[in-house]
Simulated scan of single mutants.
Amino acid sequence: MKQSTSNINTSEVIIVVINSILGAGILTLPRTISKAVGTPDVWISVILSGLIVTTISILLVTLCRRFPGKTVFEFIPEITGQWIAYLLGLLIIVYFVVLCSFEVRVMAEITSMYILERTPTWVTIMVSLWIGIYMLTGGLKVIIRVFSIVLPVTLVLLALVFLLSTKMFEINNLRPLLGDGFMPVLKGLKPSCLSYSGYEVLLIITAYMVDVKASNKAAIYSILSCTIIYLVTIVTVVGNLSLPGIQTRMWPTFDMVRSFEIEGFLFERYESLFIVFWLMQIFATYAFKHYFAAIGIRDLFRLKNITSIQFAMLPVLYVIAYLPKNLEETLALGDFLGNMSIFLFGLLPLLLLIISFVRKKGGKQASSEALKAS
């Protein structure tokens, strides 16, 4: 049992999962899902994908609860054997590492496009990584405390922006309902499910919970919270920009914020404030993935000093983040990661759970062993 870090309560797990999901997806989701669906029924796809991801998340925590106090990298060998466990563990670590690099590159692209136009991409990437490592060395509790402050402020600002945008909202942009039937809605499930990438941290953070029995509640609350945020975003952006207007824009959500101004209300234009806070939200996604990737390397290879691992990852993250030649290749990397997550965290946990039942691994026996270790 992880005595020094097994003190994460349910609300903190919810913060971790929400911060791990909400990132660049909210800026690009309206465009990707609109192209896939092609009708104003995109919001239905978001609801359905939220329910699917919620079900998968419950599956993940069910698997983790059979091995209390152990991360996915520690209990996979008990289910599959050592060699297969190394292969699967390496795949998960590679996924986290590449996802870290993707989030950092997206931050650099947005910064160079809207804030620091003449700043080289490599400078923004390097600064982001060094700021991140400074925070990561404080440990998981420090990271959670930082983003438990950032997340509410970001969500309040997002809600304010959505409220102010109602002046331009056209309900007719969301009509007709199911005009082309239900098939277009199903086409939107894949891109909308990919925007939930980040829920897989439950495979690690569950091991650090004080009350593991509350893991189901944490998974449901966090995924449903993200679903509501995505749903409101999609409805607001489509209602303001229309479906054809979204499909031609790279960052529809940000373009919507730029499209209106309110005279005499605190600030006339909100895009700068919005983009700064949302960059912090993308940074949160990167920070948690960096930390969990380091945990994976530590647990899989049975190392001790996680800080050294975090520092050793920096040059790897930098190189991968700098590999895409342009924004299109960066977004293509994000699509690849989303497809990879479907296998690693959609199909694989179900297979592992079935094998654990068949081979009678985990469950009450693992719980008793964890209690003895504590």
Rank of each mutant, 00 (worst) to 15 (best):
G296K: 02
A332K: 15
P324K: 00
I320G: 09
A332H: 14
F288V: 14
R302L: 10
Q310Y: 06
G296Y: 00
G334C: 01
I295N: 01
Y291V: 08
K289N: 15
P324I: 00
Y322R: 03
Y322D: 09
F292D: 13
L323S: 13
L327V: 14
H290S: 10
S308H: 03
R298C: 04
Y322N: 11
K304E: 14
I297S: 01
P324R: 00
D299F: 13
I297C: 04
L333M: 13
F288G: 07
F283I: 02
F311W: 12
L331E: 10
F292I: 15
A287F: 01
T330D: 07
A293E: 01
T285V: 03
A312T: 13
N305I: 08
K325H: 06
P315A: 06
Y322F: 03
P324H: 00
A293Q: 06
N326Q: 12
F288S: 07
H290M: 04
R298S: 08
F292P: 14
D299L: 11
I320R: 04
G334W: 01
E329T: 02
Q310R: 14
L327C: 09
Y291R: 09
K325E: 09
V316E: 05
N305W: 12
M313H: 07
A332S: 15
N305D: 15
L303I: 01
D299V: 10
H290A: 10
L331S: 08
I309C: 04
P324A: 00
